[in-house]
């Protein structure tokens, strides 16, 4: 890894990181607030039994809901809004870091220095992880702040909350590793971004539909999002297999990227 390149990367992306972190912190803050304010009313509705099927379906996806604090925290990580926000960094940055720089022509200015391509790749991967860690930490901080300010913090289990955060970091780092591997393979930004976004969208849709539609359930293990179940973690049922699968995919993607990137011809940008 190159320290100078890492510092420059983080400095260049600091405003984007701040904006995403602020968005995630706000989102994370809102969910305990909604739970503290309306959770009891929602719970009464659930317990009335009138909408039992609807609520079952609503909470099936990752256990996300605002009827419990755990459900609120799970929703804070699994809702499309935080996923889209984190994807700006976990997918947008790695695709821009290689394919984007390649298309602009700045990659050859960078690689004219005494930096191996593997070192550049490793630095981009480290920056991706750093962005994800900071962004999700903001989300976590928002959750904690909301829970403390609205007096529901005693319902949180700090160790389990940290485990959710770590699992979320692993999920988005895996997406980032895949995005960077694709980025290393393409000469242009748009096709690489389209491919990774399409892949992430399909993966999310498979898990979502699999939880709602029994015929799709068998497909769920093919989704990245299947290996992030925050409600189960908060309930004390964390599965180490999830972490192993995500870590395995990350390692495979990084190895592929480190193998393909130095072997590629970097012809003049068109």
């Amino acid at each position: 890894m190159s320290a100078a390149l890492f510092r420059r990367t983080v400095a260049a992306g600091r405003w984007r990181l701040l904006a995403v972190a602020a968005g995630l912190a706000t989102w994370g803050f809102l969910l305990p607030v909604i739970y503290a304010t309306f959770g009891a009313d929602f719970r009464q509705l659930v317990e009335s039994g009138y909408f039992a099927d609807l609520f079952d379906a609503f909470t099936a996806f990752g256990g996300g809901s605002v009827f419990t604090l755990d459900g609120s925290v799970a929703l804070g990580f699994l809702h499309p809004i935080p996923i889209a926000l984190v994807a700006v960094l976990a997918i947008g940055y790695p695709v821009a870091a290689l394919a984007g720089e390649r298309q602009r022509g700045t990659l050859e200015v960078l690689l004219a220095r005494p930096l191996s391509r593997r070192r550049v790749y490793a630095t981009a991967m480290a920056a991706t992880i750093a962005y994800v860690v900071v962004a999700l930490a903001a989300n976590l901080a928002g959750v904690v702040a909301g829970a403390v300010l609205f007096d529901v913090a005693d319902e949180l289990e700090p160790a389990r909350l940290l485990l959710v955060w770590a699992n979320a970091v692993l999920l988005f780092a895996t997406l980032g590793a895949v995005a960077l591997a694709v980025s290393a393979t393409f000469d242009r930004f748009e096709p690489a971004l389209g491919l990774v976004l399409g892949f992430a969208f399909v993966s999310y849709a498979v898990e979502l539909l699999g939880t709602l539609w029994p015929d799709m359930a068998a497909w769920r293990p093919w989704s990245f999002f299947h290996y992030f179940q925050p409600a189960e973690i908060l309930a004390g049922d964390a599965s180490p297999v999830d972490a192993v699968v995500l870590a395995g995919i990350s390692v495979a993607a990084v190895f592929y990227g480190l193998w393909i990137f130095p072997r590629r011809d970097l012809a003049a940008p068109s």
Binding site: A12, R104, G105, T106, E108, V109, L111, A112, R113, P114, L115, S116, A268, P269
Partner: peptide
Amino acid sequence: SVAIRGRVGYLPGGIALYDA
């Protein structure tokens, strides 16, 4: 190639720079 690039200066044709 890394050792070479440490001893060489290179100007690409139609150089692209970090605009910001």
